Amino acid sequence: MAITLSLGLSFSGAGVTTYRKTSAFPKPTSYTTKIRCIGWDPEGVLGPPSTGHIARREFQQRLQKDAGAREDFKRQILEEQERLRNLRAARVVPDTPAGLIEYFLDTEAQELEFEIARLRPRLDDEFFACVKFELGQLRFAVNKTQDMEDRVLELEALQKALQEGTEAYDKLQTNIVKARERLTKILTSKDIKATLLEMLERNELNKSLLTLLDENIASAQRSNQKEAADFMEKLRGAMLKYITV
């Protein structure tokens, strides 16, 4: 009968004689001690077990895979940016207000903001007068067709989008100019805390100013201007105590 000790060894009665019941002539068989637990090493002869090899390999493979995925993602972004630049460069801007109307009607929704910024000087009173004139002709036409009705809807939607877009663009430009003036005032102040409190009373600390400061911090970091970047980081922390977003 096999005996298992608490030490993890299993042996079959060393020195005990047993007989095979199936044999016609029983012969004595001697069983020697067999170690079943190869991890048992109380004297430390085998040294500490080596573990974590598979985990390290998996981590390295995952790291390499993630690095490859990041590179692929960056490459795709660069390719998409290049494709977008080529598409924008390939578009020919018409010289007349009527042609510009068709140009904007052919512009994809996600590109409308870019085109408004690029062609803002062309979106003047003359242009919007041209849109209104065509709308008036279509609305008061005697014999209206479905194409004319569709054209009215397109022009009305375009007119609204361009008016709202130009207003937002002009407001943004005004905010940028004001933010530059305010940031210059802060950076050249001899008492920054007093200046911030003064601007706070005038409600001049806002998100536009913070955004411009962040852009300057990023620019200083790219140019390795550590002292300037650190100074503006401290200024940013001070502004966050008072800023109204």
Rank of each mutant, 00 (worst) to 15 (best):
I38P: 09
P97V: 10
A220F: 01
L172Q: 02
V142H: 10
P28N: 14
A229T: 02
S219H: 05
G52L: 09
V45E: 07
D170S: 14
E181P: 00
L155V: 08
A90F: 06
S12N: 07
V93P: 12
I38V: 15
I101W: 09
C37E: 15
E126H: 11
S223G: 00
N216D: 13
R122T: 05
L213S: 05
E198H: 00
K178C: 01
E108L: 15
L212R: 07
F140G: 02
N216C: 04
K74G: 03
Q61V: 04
R118G: 08
L197D: 10
K160D: 13
I116S: 10
D191G: 02
L105W: 15
R139L: 10
T51Y: 11
T145I: 08
L9S: 13
Q163Y: 09
A220W: 01
D150E: 11
E215L: 05
E102Y: 07
L196D: 04
L213V: 05
P49T: 04
I54L: 09
T211I: 14
L209Y: 06
E79K: 13
I192W: 02
P28A: 15
A69K: 14
T17K: 13
Q64W: 03
T188P: 03
V177Q: 09
N143Q: 11
D230R: 02
N206G: 03
F140I: 01
A55K: 12
Q159W: 03
L172T: 02
Q225P: 01
E215R: 06
Q110H: 15
M199R: 01
L135A: 13
Q76M: 03
L187A: 12
E233M: 02
G44M: 06
K234E: 04
G8V: 01
E227P: 01
D170Y: 10
A141V: 04
D95E: 15
R91L: 08
Q60V: 09
D72A: 14
V45W: 07
K190Q: 09
T32M: 11
E126Y: 07
T96F: 01
K190Y: 04
G44T: 05
S30K: 15
N206K: 00
R83W: 03
F25R: 14
L5I: 02
Q76F: 01
Y242N: 00
A98G: 05
L183F: 00
T4P: 00
D125H: 14
D41R: 11
M239F: 02
A69S: 12
P26S: 08
H53C: 08
L183T: 01
A109I: 07
V93H: 10
L158S: 12
M199P: 01
N143K: 10
D125Y: 11
L196H: 04
E198G: 00
T166S: 08
L162P: 06
K74F: 08
R36K: 11
L240P: 00
T145H: 04
K65G: 03
A161K: 13
K171I: 06
R62D: 07
R83S: 03
G165P: 08
Q61N: 05
Q81R: 13
E80F: 06
E58L: 13
F25S: 13
L213A: 06
F140Q: 09
V131G: 08
L119K: 07
E164Q: 15
A157I: 12
R151K: 12
L87Y: 10
Y103G: 10
T51W: 07
K132I: 06
D106P: 07
V131L: 15
I38W: 14
P28V: 11
